[in-house]
Design a protein around this nucleic acid. Structure first.
Lengths: 193, 193
DNA sequence: CGTCTATTTGAATGTACTCAAAAGCGGTGG
DNA sequence: CCACCGCTTTTGAGTACATTCAAATAGACG
């Protein structure tokens, strides 16, 4: 298994000895999936937290009418799960699918709980991860409250240019909370200006 | 100073000895403010994290045109700050105002950093706080993407009935991302059904 | 009691959606 | 290699949800 990326990801925030790191990696399970597979399905128990080693994933909510709302995209170096259901031990509300052939490194909730008890530095690591996730979502809320769909689209492509290359416009539309048709008109408008 | 509420708040998640707790409280500064005062103003440096001991606060973003978007309300037992700017040492983007006479207990960023180094249990406490904040915001994003304003209003009054008593409809509208006029028509509709 | 702000109501407008149909694009099998 | 299939994107017409602006009414506070 290739732990280069995950090691860098963690050591951006905490320092680990070789023993600590190899204990950590002993808890990881590698999982690969081809494009268009569900790694997590709404209703299933959500007991793993995944680090993206390669590929592209998308977490989305699907309402009763079938409409999808994209919660997040995850490229290499991102962590992804249905955090609400993961921490509360509830059945997943979200679906997580691969948008390309992907490889993830997964840790179970039980192992993660044991890890933070054994090595408190991981508690800090997770605190920082959660802090960043919180502030990112809060900024997204502010954008969704204060800006038009057109502005949000331009902010999105500026903030996540790599994602734009890898996902469909339908998926971007569902991240922005608009229809694919309306996103198309926004893009047409931009082209003529 | 009355530390009953903050002690309970923390001991919901971690256990502290008397020494640990009194070290923690030695870092707190009490601040009281009458209704309609700004505890934090956009542009100021944002170096404190506040626990609400009594009263009601509101954090909001104000765009260039003057339009306000409410990010959160905080009642007794809530923690509030402009987290993004607090953790990154940036000037505040948000304003935080009292909606009633209020008392908060504040800890500075420097003291909080020292605290988590000294007592790792606080790292866990903050991790849980951030986790809850993250999942709460994520649910809010999902609601804002997948539901109409009318649904979001009904969800809001069900989820935060105490808040509804204490804040104006204008403020609720700015939390939902709609105009006060439109919230009024939603309410009228509900009354006739 | 008077003033100030919040809320309501209504008309006109704009932003975004629905539905339908056409055009584009990528992958697969013959 | 290209023809076809399925899916995505575009385009357009009609509609619904939400905003703006203005004015009336109601509440809160000194």
């Amino acid at each position: 298994m290739d732990f280069t990326a995950i090691r860098q990801n963690i050591e951006k925030h905490i320092d680990l000895s070789e023993e600590e790191f190899s204990y950590f990696t002993s808890l990881l399970k590698r999982r690969i999936a081809p494009k268009k597979k569900l790694l997590l399905q709404a209703g299933q128990s959500c007991t793993t937290f995944s680090f993206v080693n390669s590929g592209v994933l998308r977490a989305y909510y699907q309402d009763d009418s079938g409409k999808e709302s994209t919660v997040m995209f995850a490229l290499k170096d991102w962590w992804i799960t249905d955090m609400y259901c993961f921490v509360n031990g509830l059945p997943a509300m979200l679906n997580i699918e691969t948008l390309a052939d992907s490889e993830v490194l997964q840790i179970s909730k039980a192992d993660l709980d044991a890890l933070v008890d054994k090595i408190p530095k991981f508690e800090r690591f997770l605190r920082i991860l959660m802090q960043n996730a919180y502030t990112r979502e809060q900024l997204r809320v502010i954008d969704s409250l204060s800006r038009t769909a057109e502005d949000r689209y331009h902010i999105f492509i500026k903030k996540y240019p790599q994602v734009v290359q890898l996902v469909t416009q339908r998926q971007i539309a569902s991240y922005l909370g608009i229809t694919p048709e309306f996103l198309s008109t926004i893009r047409a408008k931009k082209a003529n200006s």
